[in-house]
């Protein structure tokens, strides 16, 4: 379990001073390329229309046009998009980790007929891409009368064979003596799940929570399919419709992008290590 894959000590010792300088030049140039789109977005979002469409391009606006932001916010219910994204992200993450960890506990720590067969079924669906289930899910959501509701945004993504698999792999690695000891003390299975297994799974739960919440926060296709009113849109879908409203007013579109992007970037900068670990660990299937 590569839990500390990110706290790596530098391994290879570079020999020459010039080598290090060249490396830094290379890495700094790369950093500029990586940052350029962010800077360009921020710069454009503060420009007047005249400077937006200027050649040579203006990097630092002479007149800071703060009203791009107020115009963006007044033309689109960004507050509502935020609220929706928050509600959906928190609900999906909590529900997915709850249902997956309960199921993973059963798969990893309890014995019952049909366990292997059922687990195999979960594994088999891991390979099937979302696009295959997307259309029937859309139909199910409509049949249930959930179209354009929170249920549609939250419930289908709240169940994940992948999360169950990831947690089950981790749970099987926890010593079984702990369960036995707890059972001798009279603990129920629910108690063992809550007081023994979950506390010992802190790092993997945190990694999974970050992975799931970031993916849900940025998810575009599913919310695009199951919502059609502005009141139910999440941030990515709201932003994409914003684009339809302002065809060429790039300063406003960039202000909207900053509004959509900034909070996550700030949280990321503060909690960098957790983000990278969460995404890398989950992305590698917990290895």
């Amino acid at each position: 379990m590569a839990t500390d894959l990110l706290n790596m000590p530098p391994r290879r010792r570079i020999q020459s001073r010039w080598g290090a300088v060249l490396l830094h030049i290379f890495l700094l140039l790369g950093s500029v390329v990586m940052l350029l789109p962010f800077i360009w977005m921020l710069s454009t979002s503060l420009k007047t229309p005249a400077e937006t469409f200027a050649y040579p391009p203006v990097w630092i606006p002479t007149q800071i046009a703060w009203n791009n932001y107020s115009r963006a916010v007044s033309s689109m219910p960004f507050g509502r998009f935020y609220l929706n994204s928050l509600i959906v992200t928190i609900s999906v993450t909590v529900l997915q980790i709850l249902t997956s960890s309960l199921a993973a506990f059963a798969f990893a720590r309890l014995r019952f007929p049909g366990r292997n067969l059922l687990f195999l079924l979960y594994l088999a669906t891991l390979m099937i891409p979302f696009q295959v289930t997307m259309i029937p899910n859309f139909i199910i959501v409509r049949l249930l009368g959930w179209f354009d509701t929170y249920q549609a945004l939250i419930l289908p993504p709240a169940f994940s064979a992948f999360s169950t698999f990831l947690l089950r792999q981790y749970f099987t690695g926890i010593p079984f003596d702990l369960d036995e000891a707890a059972r001798i003390d009279g603990a129920t299975s629910l108690r063992i799940w809550w007081s023994v297994i979950l506390p010992l799974s802190g790092p993997v739960l945190a990694a999974l929570a970050i992975f799931v919440s970031l993916n849900t926060w940025n998810e575009f296709l599913w919310p695009l399919i199951v919502t059609n009113s502005a009141a139910m849109r999440t941030l990515p879908v709201g932003l994409s419709t914003f684009q339809g409203q302002y065809k060429v007013e790039w300063n406003l579109l960039m202000a909207g992008s900053v509004i959509a992007m900034l909070p996550v970037l700030l949280v990321y900068i503060v909690a960098q290590r957790w983000f990278i670990r969460g995404i890398a660990l989950s992305g590698m299937g917990g290895r």
């Binding site: 990586m34 789109p37 962010f38 977005m41 970031l214 926060w217 940025n218 575009f220 941030l235 990515p236 879908v237 932003l239 994409s240 992008s257 959509a260 992007m261 996550v264 970037l265 990321y268 983000f275 995404i279």
Partner: peptide, 8 residues
């Protein structure tokens, strides 16, 4: 870029 919104 990995953590930022793909739409933005």
């Amino acid at each position: 870029p990995v953590v930022s919104s793909v739409v933005a």
